[in-house]
Amino acid sequence: MARYGIAVDVEKCTGCHSCFLACKDEHAGNDYPPISVAQPDIGHKWLRLREIEQGTGTKIKVDYIPIMCQHCEKPPCMAPGPEGAVYQRDDGIVIIDPQKAKGCKNIVNSCPYGAIFWNQEKELPQKCTLCAQMIDNGEKTTRCVESCPTGALIFGDLDDPKSEIAKLLVAKAEQVEAFKPKFGTKPTVKYIGLPKLFIAGEVLLSDKPKDCIKGAKVTLKADNQDKVMETNTDFFGDFEFKGLDRNIDYTLIAEYEGYYPQEITIRTYASKNVGELVLRAK
């Protein structure tokens, strides 16, 4: 039996909203018994986009994260309703039964991801079905994945090592994680490269303030860890450390031969642009 999931390659998401529209087009006005009834024209976001803007001044990052039902292995939405109101299929897809879940508003609130919506008219909790009606019809993908113009969404069988999704998750294993793993629900939607905190800045030399200093060594040390990160400034004298943890004290050292190094300490409340680090000549 296949076990279906979606991988979100966050780096490739440009925030175009095509996935949201494709979901509307597939589900608004269309019943797919016994899986789902029509999504209302407005108000529901079975798939939504979150824009993340980080940094300040000259170091900013703009990212988008598509968020839909995570089709959790341990779905908290199964608890509140009567038996069978929410069920997990053998292929892993979590479905809200449109008959049995009628009237169960508390199912909406059970989802920590906010991925379940209340259909006022039909008195029904509703959410992403991973387009089970398409899968059951022998199609190889979901509408949102099909509509993604950049390949940021990938659908497939997580258990088939030859599937595109499985191969991608292996190839990028280090970057794969659940969205908000603290909820402990074990999502089958996998995120690759979720935006992390960064520290960025620029190295300048006091006697050549107009030059871009390429190749200055910059070191970042977490005060409570042994790990030391190292980088060199680029063509423009800029540097950046990505993938940092929140609320950690870091020590950053910039060095360039013939100049005194400069050291600063930073606590990562959020991504940080440390600005210009000007090194004095020895």
């Binding site: 175009c16 909203h17 095509s18 529209l21 509307k24 087009d25 024209d41 509509s147 113009p149």
Partner: peptide, 12 residues
Amino acid sequence: GRACPRLLALTQ
């Protein structure tokens, strides 16, 4: 094969 949100909303 790609489309944009506005094309996907064509029916509406």
